[in-house]
Each structure stands twice: as structure tokens, then as C-alpha cells.
């Protein structure tokens, strides 16, 4: 016999907000949004959305961005727990 137990321990769901320092990295290198977009193979609108934290890039794109700036993902993207 299978018994399914559901334990309620309050609200355990954490809202993770991905933050980014992409705009900082880009301006430090003197790149325009279009130049960065062309370099990593996305549209300028996507760069704008990532910089405004309206869009979370896929892991693949995050790695591409990090590789372009010769750094690791955590330097550009980090998590804030709300």
C-alpha cells in the first residue's frame, strides 16, 4: 500500500531573481549593445532585455556571454533571493 504524505511547512518557495552586471561589463569594454549582440549572435533587443533584467538568458547564452568577456558566469549573473 502506498501512502502519500504531504507536509506543509509554511511557504518554502523561494523567488529567485537573476541579476546582471552585463551593462557594466559592456560599457567597460566600450562596446555598443549592437556590437555585443553581433558578437554573441543575438539581437540587440535581447541584449536590452537582459540588461534591464526582463529576460533570463539560457545557460548556453549565459556561457557565451561569459566566454566573450573572458570571465565566469557568476561575475556577470548572480542571484538575489526575495
Amino acid at each position: 500500500m502506498h501512502v502519500k504524505l504531504t507536509v506543509h511547512m509554511g511557504n518554502l518557495t523561494l523567488q529567485l531573481k537573476i541579476r546582471t552586471r552585463l551593462a557594466l561589463f559592456r560599457s567597460d569594454r566600450g562596446l555598443t549593445q549592437q556590437e555585443l549582440a553581433d558578437a554573441i549572435g543575438v539581437t540587440r533587443a535581447t541584449i536590452i532585455a537582459i540588461e534591464k533584467e526582463n529576460y533570463n538568458p539560457s545557460l548556453e547564452l549565459a556561457f557565451r556571454i561569459a566566454r566573450h568577456f573572458k570571465t565566469d558566469i557568476h561575475s556577470i549573473f548572480y542571484v538575489r533571493e526575495d
Partner: peptide
């Protein structure tokens, strides 16, 4: 669909 965001 030029990139992943537009595909999404």
C-alpha cells in the same frame, strides 16, 4: 526568430 528570446 533570430535568437532564443524571440523563440521564447
Amino acid at each position: 526568430e533570430n535568437d532564443e528570446r524571440e523563440a521564447q
